[in-house]
């Protein structure tokens, strides 16, 4: 028993249902139902999926609970989704995001946001 490396799923004796595939920039990535985009990417060993708009610096999960907006990602052509909040569905096309996230030009107008003050 001790020889096998513990995993979170093993620890809680989870039996996730059958998995499915999503894509990250066109590359297939395995996913499990109920996981967030961030959890799927972490499981795939991906730690960053966005670059900042000024410095072009890589970012990924920071707060993990939807507060910080560092983990923004494009999902099915919708930019600026919080990877830590969005639950994946089979076939989701996840794309890394550069700068303000509308480089692809899709949906940027409809997604204008108001943030207060």
């Amino acid at each position: 028993m001790r020889l096998r490396r513990t995993t979170p799923q093993g620890l809680v004796r989870a039996r996730p249902g059958p998995g499915f595939e999503v894509t990250l920039d066109g590359r297939p990535v395995p996913a499990l139902p109920g996981r967030t985009v961030a959890a799927v990417l972490w499981e795939a060993g991906v730690v960053a999926w966005r670059t900042t708009r000024d410095g072009g610096r890589p970012r990924g999960v920071f707060c993990g609970i939807g507060v910080c907006f560092d983990c923004l990602v494009t999902v099915n052509d919708r930019p600026n989704q919080r990877a830590c909040l969005v639950t994946v569905s089979a076939g989701d096309a996840i794309r890394t995001q550069e700068g303000v996230g509308d480089a692809g030009g899709s949906g940027a107008d409809a997604d204008a946001e108001a943030g207060g003050e």
Binding site: W42, G60, V61, C63
Partner: peptide
């Protein structure tokens, strides 16, 4: 502190409790 891989302690716990996943590495 802005490097990918630096996360909040609560965030690491949330990803573990909710996603049953550990930080890459």
């Amino acid at each position: 502190w802005t490097l990918p891989g630096v996360v909040t302690a609560g965030g690491a716990q949330a990803m573990l409790k909710g996603g049953l996943v550990l930080p890459p590495g």
